[in-house]
Amino acid sequence: MLNKQVMSPLLSIRALSTCFQIQETVVKAVDNVSLDIYPDEVLALVGETGCGKSVLALSILRLLPENSLSEGSILYKGFEILEGSNEELRALRGREIGMIPQSQASSLNPLLKVGWQVMEVLRLHTKVRKPDAHKKVVELFSRLQLPEPEKRMDYYPHQLSGGMRQRVLVSMGVACNPNLILVDEPTKGLDAVLRMEVVKLLGRQAAENNRSMLLITHDLSVAALLADRIAVMYAGEIVEMGSSAGVLKIPRHPYTQSLLDSLPGRGFKPIPGFSPSLSRIPPGCRFQPRCRVACSKGAALHPDLREADPNHYVRCFHAD
């Protein structure tokens, strides 16, 4: 384990809030999130569907639609992303911060050959000539163990299996050797065998070039397998953050505890109730209505994220 205190973070997010204006209402999808990603570190962001995980990732790359507004600060190597111009952002995306998007079925252009699509990233960011780009992509494909890489260059997405398309997306995300990769739900809908394959693929990507990774997933075992640290998100805010082992072995927040109990291997005990709609967030502790402790303090007051153990942060009145 690296000594985090002496290193400066690669990406530093402070008090980030992202809102969407939908007709008359304002929906706050990400609320006051602060986190750091250090060099050579995998940070997993876990939480239920709709808790704001993907919006956070898209905020980092400023890829959100026009009705959105991000406030706070996102510093990448000292560069303020929220104030970046379009050109600066284009230079950043793919080159410095790569993204492996969520769905392998809908993230590729169905009308273009996959080789061309991966080459596009290279040709946009580096002054590489076409034949060299071609060579480089074949090399990438073979490194990702895509069978017959030369032949696959000329395939269309529909001619590839789910696992192969996933590898094409990974190769796109890592083509320019970015320092930070944002990976959104890489194992959603994949079977156990393919899931393990993707996990190993990502693990290898992180290890080989000392890249940092923000891994967004709802799959806690994938997070456990890959992440150094885990941040748990609920209804737009981080409720617990700490080392992987710390969060999974000694979860301090009732939500993390309930989430772990809802795993099939632990008897799939469901959490009562539903996550609040992001446009109707309860005033106090957001998890209070579903919480097993459900304290009266939490019904009225909103807890802050506090350091309960060294480097283990919890947003709960009962963490001490």
Binding site: G203, S244, L248, G265
Partner: peptide, 14 residues
Amino acid sequence: TVFELPTRLKRDNL
């Protein structure tokens, strides 16, 4: 392919 939590993938040699 089923693991008890928290199983970790040792990244240098997977």
